[in-house]
Every structure is written in C-alpha cells, then in structure tokens.
Design a protein around this nucleic acid. Structure first.
Lengths: 145, 145
DNA sequence: ATATATTAATACCTTTTTATCCTTTTTATA
DNA sequence: TATAAAAAGGATAAAAAGGTATTAATATAT
C-alpha cells in the first residue's frame, strides 16, 4: 500500500500527462492518456469524468473533443487533485485511525504524525500540475510503468 | 484513506496497548485488548495471530494465557510493526505507483516524495513500541475512538 | 440532416480488505 | 485426568476498491 490510493495515483499521472500534452492548446483522447500513463482505460475514464465534474480538468465531447486543462486549472496545486480523489483525510486524519484524536485528546503518535501530515500537505500544496511540463518534454521524467 | 491500512492502525494501537498493559509482566486477553483499542474482536484476533507468528508480540494459550510483549520485543521500533503488516512499500514505493521509478528513471514527483518517504520511515524507526507506556499510564494519550 | 468521433453515464464484474463465526488445539489447574 | 480458559485456525460473508463493457448523449464535419 502506498500513501495514495491507486485511483489517486492514476489521477495524478493523468493530470501531469494531460497538462503536458495540452500545454500548447488542443485536447487529448482517453485512449492516448491511458496508454501514456499505463493505466486501465475504462477505469481511468471514470476517474477523469470525476475530475472533470470537479473542475480539476476539462473535457469536450464530439469530434476533436477530448480532455484538456485550461490555463487557470494548470496552476492548481497537487493538493487539490488529491483532495478531489482521496478526500483530505490524508491531511487531517489521525495516523492510528482514531476519530477523536486531537491536540486535547491525542493518540500516542499524534505529535510525530502531525509533522508528517504537514510535510505531505506542504509538498503537494507547493507543487503545481504544470510544473513538470518541461521535464516531461525533455524526457527527464517518466509517467508509465 | 489514511497513510496506514486499517489492519495496520489496529496493529499499532494493539501493540501500544499490550506493551503498556504488560509492562510489569503478565498477559492480556484478546477481549480486553479489543475493548481497550475499540477494534472488532475477531478481526483483531487475526491480526495478533499474525504479529505473534512474526515475533512482533508473544502469546500463550490456556488458562491465564494471553498476549504480551517481551523485553526485547518492546524495544522494537514501529517500523518493524508496519513492515510486518503493510510491507515496506510505504518506505520504498513510488508515490505515483510506478514500478520502475528510481533515481535514474524518476517520476515527476520522485524527489519531493523521496523526502516524505524518508521522513515517515525515520519517524517510525525512531519510535519504539514501549516509549508511550508512561503517557498511557498517566492518561495523557488515548488508544480508543 | 446525418454520420461519426468523442466523452458521459451506467451497470456490472473481480479482487482485496475488513469483519464474523465456529471449530480445534493447547495448557494450567482443580 | 477432566475441565475450563485461552489462542490458533478455517470457512465464510460483507463492504470497498479496482476494473470492464455497454449504451447514451453530444458536438461537429460534411
């Protein structure tokens, strides 16, 4: 098990792919995205529908339709994507799964875990969707396998 | 979804509870543990069996039997518990779920995520099972709900 | 107008995780 | 030695996550 759900992993990879692929305008079809990030096509379709409904990405139907990310959306931080898919339990929840864990009623790991949570949040908050476009163009980073 | 699986959350809470409860010797039964950490009894039983098989905790059958943690085991770090339950994917895996992600073939998030992973690992590595016994005795920290 | 390419919606299937129940084995002690 | 107490183990079920297939809706080129 990783930090993110499989759904969220696909979502992040897809968002990077679409942002990169449509940086100069245009749209990209679901098949191409699925292939580009090595994800199951139909499953990804559901994820992208959801992201589109939530305004994380955009889509257009019909011929020459496809998915894309507009100028405003591509400035979004990854925390928005993660929140849309996995909720913000990762940023706020107790490490030991205790419902009422808080500053006044902490679990043993509360303080240590608070730092971790915060670190994860800051990392995602300070990273934008578009910021890897160049690396992807240069082939410095990979999105499949 | 949290950082750990539900199974792992129960395991960590149980390990804290048992260590605290048997710090002065003696054993504690499954019912008491389940009640003490607000977990489903039979599900927890499976988890504890597994932890016992893997040497993270100890158990004794028969009258006056139960679970306990010996002196050596209570010095174990939490990373051992997590590794036993969730494997070490959390410490080594790619944030985007890419199989071949590495220093030479990184995903976009590789460097940022490496730090997070490491932070999680160090936190767990540097925290022992027994180190919360006192807080638990004083009622400073909680293990249920 | 119509055919076509495309996403949207929906329904369904499979696997994994979480949870429960029941039986068996072990063991202390009366 | 019988009994009771406790964990161990097996079988099953429910829920959630992950994945597939099909149909509907729709924009656009012709």
């Amino acid at each position: 098990m990783g930090v993110f759900s499989k759904t969220c992993e696909y979502a992040l990879r897809a968002v990077f792919f679409i942002a990169h692929r449509t940086a100069e305008g245009g749209k990209v079809g679901i098949k191409e995205v699925a292939d580009g990030i090595a994800s199951p096509e139909y499953f990804l379709a559901k994820i992208l529908q959801d992201l589109s409904r939530k305004g994380i990405i955009q889509s257009a139907k019909g011929p020459h339709g496809g998915f894309f990310i507009d100028d405003k959306s591509r400035k979004n931080s990854l925390s928005e994507v993660v929140k849309a898919v996995d909720g913000n339990g990762l940023f706020t929840g107790c490490g030991l799964g205790l419902e009422y864990c808080s500053e006044v009623n902490p679990c043993p790991l509360h303080n240590q875990f608070k730092d971790i949570r915060n670190q994860i949040y800051l990392m995602l908050k300070n990273t934008s969707i578009e910021q890897f476009n160049e690396d992807l163009s240069l082939g410095i980073t990979a999105l499949k396998k």
